[in-house]
């Protein structure tokens, strides 16, 4: 799933934190990492000593990963998204977890741009899953996964990734708007139940428990609500282009990433190339 992962890093990144991340990525199947740092044009630190990157690289190597270090220039989010493509990364790991909870919950503009621009899956690490401080590897079999889908093409794409997460519990959540009349609503509900049942059957071999739930309402609000209720570690969802009217409020995915305590694994829409 994340055999080769690109990790964007900035100055003052702490090696001990990155070591924990490395152990978690290893658990999720990563074997190599590309540490990527972007110099902003006109930045005060441009061309400065980049030896801190070596320290970070060593921290990740201690976790058993093959590490390469790359640097780039330009608009940060665009450069990261482009590097992920050029380096053949399977995904991007983005650490939203900071020292203070409020910092973790507030997503920076770079992260927001990256979520929109990336052509490979992005894992945004928030409060959950908590990384062990004692140097042990996180246990993948304890993971609670929330797979949010509206059963269309964009949200079916994450299914193979959900399977690879495996873990203790997968809760498949379908959120949609209500149909305009009771008959259409019943027909749609029955169709959704059938499809969710099929998805659950596909996921059952990979998880200790698979449950399904269907909700009506605003997708972002419902996903956040259910994620908190089941204390999901990772929310897996597909990214879609926002509708014209919803654009000013932001993509559903962006709102989920901003408001969630669980980590988010966001899979871009197939066939869309944003960075290039």
């Amino acid at each position: 799933m994340l055999e080769k992962t690109l990790i964007p890093v900035a100055y003052k990144e702490r090696p001990e934190e990155l070591r924990k991340v490395g152990r978690m990525l290893k658990t999720l199947g990563a074997n190599s990492v590309c540490l990527y740092h972007v110099n902003e044009p006109g930045s005060f630190f441009r061309g400065a000593d980049l030896s801190w990157l070596t320290l970070l690289s060593e921290a990740l190597e201690e976790a058993g990963l093959i590490v390469e270090v790359k640097t780039g220039e330009g608009h940060i989010a665009s450069a990261i998204a482009e590097a992920a493509l050029l380096e053949g990364a399977d995904g991007i790991y983005m650490k939203a977890k900071r020292r203070w909870h409020i910092e973790t919950m507030l997503l920076g503009s770079v992260s927001r741009d990256l979520l929109r621009l990336a052509d490979v899956p992005v894992l945004v690490h928030k409060v959950r899953p908590r990384l062990p401080d004692d140097g042990t590897e996180p246990d993948q079999s304890d993971l609670n996964i929330l797979y949010a889908t509206d059963l269309d093409e964009a949200s079916a794409r994450p299914l193979p990734y959900v399977m690879e997460f495996a873990g203790a519990w997968c809760h498949v959540l379908h959120v949609r708007g209500r149909m305009a009349d009771p008959l259409a609503e019943r027909t749609r509900r029955e169709a959704v139940e059938r499809e969710l049942h099929t998805v659950a059957e596909e996921l059952r071999p990979y998880f200790g428990r698979v449950t399904v739930e269907e909700r009506i309402g605003d997708p972002a609000a419902q996903v956040l609500h259910v994620s908190d209720r089941i204390e999901a570690d990772v929310v897996v969802l597909g990214r879609k282009s926002p509708a014209f009217l919803s654009a000013p409020m932001g993509e559903t995915a962006e709102r989920i990433v901003t408001g969630s305590s669980a980590s988010i694994f966001l899979v871009p829409q197939p066939g869309r190339r944003n960075a290039s």
């Binding site: 209500r178 149909m179 305009a180 009349d181 009771p182 008959l183 259409a184 609503e185 009506i216």
Partner: peptide, 18 residues
């Protein structure tokens, strides 16, 4: 078109449901 009773409340099914 949607086969509901000719009431104003019928028009609110997409928001209010049952």
């Amino acid at each position: 078109r949607r086969g509901m009773p000719a009431l104003i409340s019928s028009c609110f099914y997409p928001i209010l449901g049952e």
